[in-house]
Design a protein around this nucleic acid. Sequence first.
DNA 1: ACTAGCACTCATGATGGTTGAGTGCCAAGG
DNA 2: CCTTGGCACTCAACCATCATGAGTGCTAGT
Lengths: 339, 339
Amino acid sequence: MDERARHLLKSLIEQHIAKGVPVGSRQLARDAGLNISPATVRNVMADLEDEGYLISPHTSAGRIPTHVGYRFFVDALLRVVPLSAESNRLLIHRIGFRAPDVEQVLHAATGILSELTHMAGFVRVPRRATRILRHVDFIALREREVLAIFVTDKGDVENRLIRTEHPFGTAELAQAANFFNATYGGRPLQDVIHNLQRDLQQSRHEMDRILRSAMELGEEMLEEDQQRMLIEGEFQWLDLPELAGSERLRELLAAVRQKRDLVHLLDESMRGSEVRLFIGEESGYAPLSDCSVVSAPYSVDGEVVGVLGVIGPMRMPYQQIIPLVDGTAQLLGRALSQS
Amino acid sequence: MDERARHLLKSLIEQHIAKGVPVGSRQLARDAGLNISPATVRNVMADLEDEGYLISPHTSAGRIPTHVGYRFFVDALLRVVPLSAESNRLLIHRIGFRAPDVEQVLHAATGILSELTHMAGFVRVPRRATRILRHVDFIALREREVLAIFVTDKGDVENRLIRTEHPFGTAELAQAANFFNATYGGRPLQDVIHNLQRDLQQSRHEMDRILRSAMELGEEMLEEDQQRMLIEGEFQWLDLPELAGSERLRELLAAVRQKRDLVHLLDESMRGSEVRLFIGEESGYAPLSDCSVVSAPYSVDGEVVGVLGVIGPMRMPYQQIIPLVDGTAQLLGRALSQS
DNA sequence: ACTAGCACTCATGATGGTTGAGTGCCAAGG
DNA sequence: CCTTGGCACTCAACCATCATGAGTGCTAGT
């Protein structure tokens, strides 16, 4: 592909991103800035179509990029622009501080992604597999109801109600908690569960019921984030002419609610430490075949624990979206880390 | 309005609910079961239109009920059917047990409402104003980061990260927590905050910073539920021919995201203890003027703490929706109460 | 190698006629 | 007086037709 073809492809994609309609040879010839006639442009476009970068919806429409075209565009032609000062200010304002509450800051990140991009924003909740158990508490709520509370070193808190056969006194529970903290505190959650499992096999004691439930809570904490992700702003898709009113939109919404496959896709993208793009079919996930996913992993204290990003039409302003998603990931990581 | 007119109105509304299209005189004459000609039906319908129960979208369409018509229908003509065995089973399966986690059961209730009705389900989170503070914990997370944890008697847990000027030792924090629990434990949250506010005015101590933050957390717990509600299944509205693709849908979604006015409306409906209906304009809230809201308050330990329900088109099968919303409210209340 | 010209395609939108469901009104009949 | 059949009228929905215009591929001439 020669320089001129590249330039035309770039120009075409930019126009299509801006307008959303197929781009014809006349308009492209005019806007590309080369001194070239529409007929010449047509020849080039025909070549690009043969090579799979473009496609025409029907004979007498202009052409639109394929996912291959977009891929070439972002890899070879795109020049990302730095985050606008205003967006940056907004980001910092919303998620720039060490959060008082993990849930809140995740929610804020999802929201700001969606707002600034006018697409759906998502945040995969932080993985807790390597978390360290900081503190456990058992609190008598009522007769025969005990509330177990787990705290990890990153400051997230989970709780669970346990019903017991016999009533427990405050002192008894405090003792159990002390034992628990002394034995398992300061160790990774995974170890805690593992050891607890082993230890419980041997003894048989009424207090076991509480410990066993505590273990289940720990297991849930690890399993839960296999599934959880926040997503917000799906309704923005209603504004897209390429999706609105069609069956595809329905499918997409259903798929996003399902989350399973999406979570799987995102976990893939957590391996690297860079922004990743899944353009159209590249995700290998049918309901997303008209969409692009831009994702970036975020790290807490140097370790990648989650991923966030946006889901929108293939036709999205990548040069702004990419730095935005990147910046959000950085800030979220910092907000969740030690200052 | 005589018996025949009532019967025809009932029949018309039932048909319109079932089919979603305007009902004409011929069809109504046939399906109403009275031995009556379409012309007669037309006369009756014209009267009903004059009285405001019906309206015709245009000259040669049939007629559809107004919100006045629906109101009369549900108040005077509707016979609610008991909850189907299957729905009941599903409800109990999903929210019939004392929940291990409050959030989870609220979420489950929202989901099941949406699924069973094919409309949007919502749950207003339980009010905590009258909750009793059961336990407070201060946990040193890292150097100069303290996690404050509040537990109420109903078993919900809130936490907040507090940054401190100076590092605190575990013993110090335990002492603070002990003091806190001894002084304020077992008292209603509102009192706790009030007293704390007063007590803090006098002394000036480094530990105050923690207590002050704890107070703020308490305040947030009370304020937060001014705003919070869960809502799910808005996307089901896409299937409705009367909303789909129009600007109204957009408005509705935006309004629901906004929540403010909606929450206000629902708080109104918490006064009684019965199922309440807001049909169309009755809500006094423009974006909802094409919709109906069916809501029912739920109680924990005998006290109304929240409200749940569904939002859907005016044209909804009230005779099934009403018992369903009612039943869900009962079950949710029970799931959150002492067994 | 580029371009002008030309025949061709096809979505889009306007036009107009037809159909069918439905209405209001009136006059005749129980 | 209520009911009913009849009739003229309305109007959305559907369909076919047509013009328009943007766009294409191809070819021949520069």
